[in-house]
Amino acid sequence: MPNQNGSLYGLTILSPIIDDENATPSHDLQIRDYLAQLSTREDSPFAMAPGTHLARLVVMDDVIYVGMPSCEEHLKSKYLVFESNCDGDLDTYLGGLADAIPTHLDGIWGHCVGYPKQGAADRQAFIHYMKACQLETTFYFAAVNDKSVPATLKALQIQTAVADFIASHQGADPATLQREFIDFAAHLRAQPAPPPGSLGPHRTIETGGHNE
């Protein structure tokens, strides 16, 4: 199935944005404004909900005219694009979003045509709505396609800790090395995986133009 690669799911959703000339600011701008306020770190809505490796939200204003001799044409709606690379089963993932971050989902998709009146609080209606806006992915590539988000974060945690352990135990005698390795492994196993979105650098500038 093209939406899936191993245990990873490539979710692509295009939601038409409400076109209301009486809305000020327009609904697409309200979405952009809402997204601009959202954290991309461990307090991101997608970090609070389970299962998202990487995700993006994009307001697509129109299709792009590439010049003569092609025909110029335009969309009648603007669309909110949601591209998510997530763990496993789609219903579980969407249900997890609805359970964990309903207010954010309403803040974003509440500006889209046909969004459930009760919002994400109506779990089934939310899942049904998202599926109605879903596009089938034609070809999906994942560099690592068999690890969940928690498993990936745990592996990255172990990688860093192991590097530190090796650096600090060069030349240790066998008995000490073994004893301290056993303690180290037990300690590492007991440690919780770091929260999603938490290990990146704190940067004040997060923009990036077309082709820097």
């Binding site: 601009a36 991309t40 990936t152 290990l199």
Partner: peptide
């Protein structure tokens, strides 16, 4: 892109 999230930005 208007909003971009990754679980492991580093």
């Amino acid at each position: 892109t208007d909003y971009y999230y990754t679980a492991y930005p580093h």
